[in-house]
Design a protein around this nucleic acid. Structure first.
Lengths: 215, 215
DNA sequence: CGCTGAATGGAGTAAGCGGTCCATTAACTC
DNA sequence: GAGTTAATGGACCGCTTACTCCATTCAGCG
């Protein structure tokens, strides 16, 4: 629920915490809408209602601000999927989650794509630290999916030859690709197709006989 | 094999064509490595060995150059998958294509992701025309996959309740998401998991009884 | 109350950016 | 081979950018 880092900065007053929060929130919104490179610090200053020097008081440079944005964005995206994300341990739950994600995209006009994925794509080749932060965010996301599938497996609902780890990674891939295609095509068709295919595949890996105990 | 546009520009001499090609090729390489925003026109000029004014002689502005880069990148990515991409009409062909894509990513150290997807992600919210060009590129890609699956369907190898169009879109989604995760994680595990899951799903939709004609 | 350090405002800077202009040279046409 | 047009080189411009500095104000604490 929180990955906020201790930046080893001088201790902040309540007011300072609030200002820092306003800056990073404003930056996160702008960077989601226009991308990191398309967001100047002046834009952030105006949106947050602070003076230029504030940003450098709370963040060493733009790169540090970007990393803070990755942290709050990751938390926001994962939190937005709760409580569904923590309980993906049945086909019904998976389908409900799928519907939620699709509706969320439709609700924002299919624009923006995945906030985490977009940050990752833009920063992966230019900022090693940012890339690793995004990777950690995806790891948390994948772990939640994994946990649900593992519970199904442990309960004996998934066939023994199914690999919950592989399936979780594949589901995350289908989700991310679906979100990217949704953003570019401006419709949710590909997202639905990708997730439905994955969910159908998982359904096909569920045990058919309800009681395979005795011979 | 070619989407190169007629820019309604003044007619080019042989030398002019070559220079234009050098510029767009250099721009495509740099933008793949550093992103569009991270590539200045000065970088392109140096890499292509031309003077500043050349870029504006052949392209009206940076946006026009970007669109030309999208065109050549799309062609390059699709061509690189030939002849496999045009013959995805069997499970063996699909698996061979999967292996090729995975090996390609591994060969470049899992860096860069999908050149088309990266361009799309960076430009989708800031350049409508670019977004549509990328969408058209994805449409070509998806169509190739669709054609192969449709051939399988028409031959009766795919079950009647399988939808080649949906499956093609889902496969493209799994591929793109897998490529994004590969780029960010710096390993091909997620790409393999995503594509394997989709291919297993397609395999499960293949008819089991070879001759379902009589009652 | 008075000290210390954090919070703030705003002017300022140096570099890099996309883009322009124009004079010169090379390539095609008749 | 003369004339037209494309190709080229490079100086140049205005703007935006990330970032700095310093003086001032405010919050917390004994």
């Amino acid at each position: 629920m929180s990955t906020e880092e201790a930046t080893a900065a001088p201790r902040l007053t309540r007011k300072g915490m609030a200002t820092r929060g306003r800056i990073v929130t404003a930056a996160a919104e702008l960077m989601f809408e226009r991308g990191v490179a398309g967001t100047s610090l002046e834009d952030v200053q105006k949106a947050a209602g602070v003076s230029p020097s504030q940003v450098y008081h709370y963040f060493g440079d733009k790169g540090a601000l970007v990393r803070a944005v990755i942290a709050v964005t990751t938390d926001a995206v994962l939190d937005a999927q709760e409580p569904l994300l923590s309980r993906l341990d049945s086909l019904e739950a998976l389908r409900a989650w799928r519907d939620f994600v699709v509706a969320l995209q439709a609700g924002r006009g299919c624009a923006g794509g995945c906030p985490i994925g977009s940050l990752g794509s833009e920063l992966a080749e230019t900022d090693q630290a940012a890339r690793e932060d995004v990777a950690a965010g995806f790891a948390r996301w994948g772990q939640s999916i994994h946990d649900g599938l593992q519970a199904m497996y442990d309960r004996g609902e998934l066939r023994r030859d199914a690999d919950p780890g592989q399936l979780a990674l594949a589901t995350l891939a289908a989700l991310q690709g679906g979100l990217l295609l949704t953003q570019i095509r401006r419709d949710t068709v590909a997202l639905e197709a990708g997730l439905d295919a994955m969910l159908d595949h998982i359904a096909a890996l569920c045990v058919t006989a309800p009681e395979p105990t005795g011979p």
